[in-house]
Design a protein around this nucleic acid. Structure first.
Lengths: 127, 127
DNA sequence: CTGGAACCTGACGCTGACGTTAGAGGCAAG
DNA sequence: CTTGCCTCTAACGTCAGCGTCAGGTTCCAG
């Protein structure tokens, strides 16, 4: 499949895919004319990359991490790397939960002091 | 208290505090000479701002949110805003947990298959 | 009153993950 | 062979949250 198809099937922009390749995160074979071709596994790889980006990892960190994911072998270094990143994600989750709790407190106060709590409000809360 | 003291007591840089003020997130009174002075509540405010930043909110969103936090009154709009941001944080937490699970799977696989650990692999990981 | 630390206002720099032209070439259909 | 869409590289633009430097001012201890 070519880059446009991979882009639309993954929901990632063509530019981003080229950027991933530039960063060494995503490989491609080239046609005679130089156009990128991808196998079926590429979509999964892109999803994984996206997920790690969403977890706040930098492309550099992902670059370090991906060989650990690909490799069937495991080194102390790779395990350490994986665990370190896991810990960082954990920490981020903790901070997010704290922030959410803080917002919840504000919301609770906001609603208790709301004299007229209409149906629209209930809908907003449910959403 | 002056800006340096607030900075060191909150662990936030002086530059960041000025930036917060520039963004309308943090108020200060000024001395005759133009120097910023802060009350005791400022530290809490800074911590809250930091927490919201850590939750991935933009300064613009925080700017919208803070009046809701400050206000003793609650409007449908403010409640909707609070709930929307809560939802976004929730979503982010979900994605982070997914990423963590994904990493956990990799880690589990990595540890079960930890047998042949060559120097080449270590070098590849280090690189 | 004076020296030096702390503060002030610009304003440019930086990083990361792309967006966005621009100009040129590849590729399948008719 | 041509049309037209897709793709290519190269390179500049963007945005947020500050870091940092420059040049000047304020404050307070001694």
């Amino acid at each position: 499949m070519r880059i446009g198809e991979l882009a639309s099937s993954t929901g990632v922009s063509v530019r981003a895919l080229r950027y991933y390749e530039e960063q060494g995160l995503l490989a491609s074979t080239r046609s005679n004319g130089g156009q990128r071709h991808y196998g079926d596994a590429a979509a999964d790889r892109v999803h994984l990359i996206q997920m790690l980006y969403a977890a706040g990892l930098s492309s550099r960190t992902i670059l370090d991490l991906l060989p650990c994911v690909d490799a069937k072998v495991s080194t102390p270094q790779s395990r350490a790397l994986l665990n370190a990143e896991r810990a960082r994600i954990d920490e981020q989750i903790t901070r997010l939960v704290q922030a959410r709790d803080r917002l919840d407190a504000v919301i609770a106060h906001s609603q208790s002091s709301a004299s007229g709590c209409t149906t629209a409000d209930a809908a907003a809360v449910a959403a």
